[in-house]
């Protein structure tokens, strides 16, 4: 690695900022465009599933986005797996630290998607269903939320997980339970749709958003509470990788930085 210096010391790598901003820009464009589209067409051609307009303007989207998202998710994860590091035992610490920054950047992208999905797009669904008559399981807010935003959420989580699994020794040799739980939560939201739609169809007629029928989603959202364990796992290793080994006066001053307070 270029960052490795003599005597096994290295300078700090940087986070993949350019790629991260590019990815976030892409996510912003995608979610933003979808939002504009939703705003413009939901109340005009999105109110009646059985109308031709609905089939044209909304169901077409569903039919496009599901295979595209599934295909691209599988392709990205396949690529991550295919290009996995087969010599993790020889991984230089500087590179390992860089990869930790990469995985944190991926989790950041996951967090951005989590926010967009769980807040503006979820509450768009709330606002929509409280002012219109629910007709089928496919409404303009469901098509965006459940069949676009949540698959994106799943993909972003799985990508970070797969990256760590294939490129970071501690995540490759063992399985991080908190990381698995954090990623499994969004995945389980998809099958939980079964409960939601079954309930709305057969016994739940009102659109009270805090209704028990929605609590399955909450429970799965709580999977992110395991993020604490993941943070501890990552930081524990980052602490090891950010030790200063030079015997210069830097070692002393590093302690003051490490404490972060005046002692």
């Amino acid at each position: 690695m270029s960052s490795v210096m003599q005597n096994n010391t290295y300078v700090s790598p940087k986070g993949p900022w350019a790629k991260l901003f590019l990815a976030l820009f892409g996510v912003g464009i995608l979610y933003g465009s979808y939002r504009i589209y939703q705003n413009a067409t939901a109340f005009t051609v999105g109110l009646d599933y059985f109308s031709e307009d609905f089939q044209t303007y909304w169901m077409t989207l569903l039919y496009i986005q599901l295979p595209v998202l599934f295909g691209s998710g599988a392709a990205i994860v396949g690529w991550i797996w295919h290009t996995r590091d087969r010599h993790l035992d020889k991984l230089a610490p500087a590179e390992e630290l860089r990869r930790y920054f990469v995985v944190l950047a991926q989790i950041m992208a996951f967090a951005v998607i989590a926010y967009l999905t769980a807040s503006p797009f979820t509450e768009a669904d709330a606002a929509w269903h409280q002012v219109t008559v629910r007709d089928t399981d496919f409404t303009p807010t469901h098509i965006v939320l459940f069949y676009f935003a949540i698959p994106m959420f799943i993909i972003s989580g799985v990508v970070a997980f797969a990256y760590a699994r294939t490129r970071l020794p501690q995540f490759a040799n063992r399985l991080s339970l908190p990381f698995a739980v954090v990623v499994a939560g969004p995945i389980m939201i998809m099958p939980n749709l079964g409960l939601n739609e079954w309930g709305h169809t057969f016994f739940y007629a009102e659109e009270l958003f805090a209704a028990p029928i929605h609590w399955g989603f909450v429970l799965l959202g709580w999977a992110t509470f395991a993020a604490g364990g993941l943070v501890v796992q990552i930081l524990t290793r980052v602490v090891e990788l950010t030790k200063v080994v030079s015997v210069s006066e830097g070692a002393e001053s590093s302690r003051a930085v490490a404490v972060g307070v005046s002692v």
Partner: peptide
């Protein structure tokens, strides 16, 4: 996974690494 003498070259580099973590983790 890796022990031994590997490490950052100076406290300044260490601080840079810490800043990188802060910049990634806090917004996250």
């Amino acid at each position: 996974v890796s022990a031994g003498q590997h490490g950052l070259s100076s406290a300044i580099e260490q601080r840079k690494a810490y800043v990188q973590v802060d910049l990634l983790v806090i917004p996250l």
